[in-house]
């Protein structure tokens, strides 16, 4: 993939922009170290409309999505990369359903980074982690291998495969507007998941989604450390433990 000349647009997404900016920063840092120039839309970037769709409001979502599709199309980027599986799913699966077609090639951050990770010298992180396939990334869009490839490229990192993984992976509890409308429920699901991962001998839970990361981290007290793949990759490239 050729990504010189600012052809790659990094769609940050609302969650990473406002709620978990550490993931946006990790993405920028990793891309910088791997020599991948990323273009940003800055304040022009809006919302994909996913949250409205997940709550059944198609009309509202269409209003939002029309504006967003225009902003993306007029950026002239060839590749759009996002770390948010919610945005990814919405662009790839829902926009065509809404009658909106993006000409840009939409990818998940891990798909982009998997092609370039060989450029960096990765330093060890000695930790045993279990990877949680985010629902929107795995089951909905079919990206299972790239996040694992990135994790396996980090020396010292032991990746535990839970019995429920890939297609049958568990859910963090945040999707479908549940985190927004029933926080107590979303956090109870997250705690259940983290306790389960802990019982598998993992020291940390790793995900590749700002929503999972946000919900799991908020629910992690006394259970497990929570990381995003981007954070571990950034730590490994920079050679810092945390």
């Amino acid at each position: 993939m050729d990504c010189s000349n600012g052809e790659v647009l990094f769609w940050v997404g609302c969650m990473s922009s406002y709620r978990v900016p550490e993931l946006a920063k990790s993405m920028m840092s990793v891309a910088d170290k791997l020599n991948i120039p990323l273009k940003l839309l800055g304040v022009e970037e809006g919302c994909c409309g996913s949250i409205l769709l997940r709550l059944g409001d198609r009309r509202g979502a269409l209003q939002v999505a029309r504006v967003t599709a225009n902003v993306i199309e007029s950026s002239n980027a060839k590749i759009l990369v996002t770390h948010c599986p919610g945005c990814l799913r919405t662009f790839k699966l829902d926009y065509p359903q809404l009658g909106l077609s993006l000409t840009v090639d939409v990818k998940h951050s891990t798909q982009l980074l998997a092609d370039y990770v060989g450029r960096a010298e990765l330093k060890p992180i000695n930790m045993r982690v279990a990877y949680l396939d985010p629902c929107h990334l795995g089951r909905h869009v079919g990206v299972y291998d790239e996040p694992r490839l990135l994790l396996r490229s980090i020396p010292g990192l032991e990746v535990v495969e839970p019995p429920e993984s890939r297609e049958s992976s568990l859910c963090c509890g945040a999707g479908g507007g549940v985190r927004a409308c029933y926080e107590e429920l979303a956090m109870a699901v997250a705690r259940e998941l983290l306790a389960h991962f802990k019982s598998l001998g993992a020291e940390a839970c790793v995900t590749a989604c700002p929503f999972c990361y946000y919900n799991l981290k908020a629910s992690s007290e006394g259970l497990l450390e929570v990381y995003d793949v981007l954070q571990l990759l950034d730590m490994s490239i920079r050679g810092v433990k945390s």
Binding site: V12, C14, S16, S17, Y18, P21, A24, K25, L40, G42, V43, E45, G46, C47, G49, I51, L52, L55, D57, G60, Q63, V64, A180
Partner: peptide, 22 residues
């Protein structure tokens, strides 16, 4: 969310310029 998205481009109604504060 819909009201905020239409007014500020994010679900929580945070100021647009804060989108890049990170």
């Amino acid at each position: 969310f819909l009201k905020n998205l239409l007014a500020a481009g994010n679900p929580w109604g945070e100021p647009r310029e804060m989108r890049v504060s990170w």
